[in-house]
């Protein structure tokens, strides 16, 4: 039930406790309690909105995906260096990955210069950072399982069918 609830609100965080109670056949109070628990356990970490910023004219933001090679630190592995990186406000996401690099840092900045400055002034000088490779995002196609491009999907079914 918890997993099913999470899947439902993962796709649509606007569903109200009243709607969810009808969808799952439990009381509204049970839904509220369950969500509160999931929030307390940090299973639910927040309720952001998926925005296609490319459509917001005043907003000239640049996204970069930076691959980072680091030296893990004794006793703390990658966690300490990851933390030093993810605490920066500009950093949107940080993942530890397998492959040629250790961390992927997704950065949102106002301009390419701002991102270049972050990499050269903040990221590269960190002692544990061995090397970085910065990739600028040219176009976003899909985020959080939802397509950002293409036409708005219309219901093309006939209105009444047997």
């Amino acid at each position: 039930m918890k997993e099913k609830l999470l899947r439902a609100i993962d796709k649509n965080s606007k569903l109200s406790p009243a709607d969810l109670s009808r969808m799952f056949g439990v009381t509204e109070e049970e839904i509220v309690t369950m969500i509160k628990e999931l929030e307390d356990e940090k299973v639910i970490c927040g309720y952001p909105t998926l925005i296609n910023w490319e459509k917001v004219e005043q907003d000239e933001r640049v996204t970069a995906i930076i691959e980072v090679k680091v030296t893990p630190q004794r006793g703390q592995g990658f966690d300490r260096i990851a933390e030093r990186i993810y605490k920066f406000d500009e950093v949107a996401d940080v993942y530890l990955i397998s492959g040629n690099y250790d961390l992927v840092v997704i950065l949102e900045g106002k301009s390419m210069r701002e991102i270049a400055n972050f990499v050269s002034d903040k990221l590269s000088p960190l002692e544990a950072v061995l090397s970085t490779s910065t990739n600028f995002v040219l176009k976003k196609y899909k985020e959080h399982g939802l397509p950002l491009v293409g036409e708005v999907k219309q219901d093309e079914r006939m209105l009444v069918t047997p």
Binding site: R157, M158, L159, V160, T161, P162
Partner: peptide
Amino acid sequence: DAISLGVGEPD
């Protein structure tokens, strides 16, 4: 602008 709940096929 009618809303249909009349179809017999998956959405």
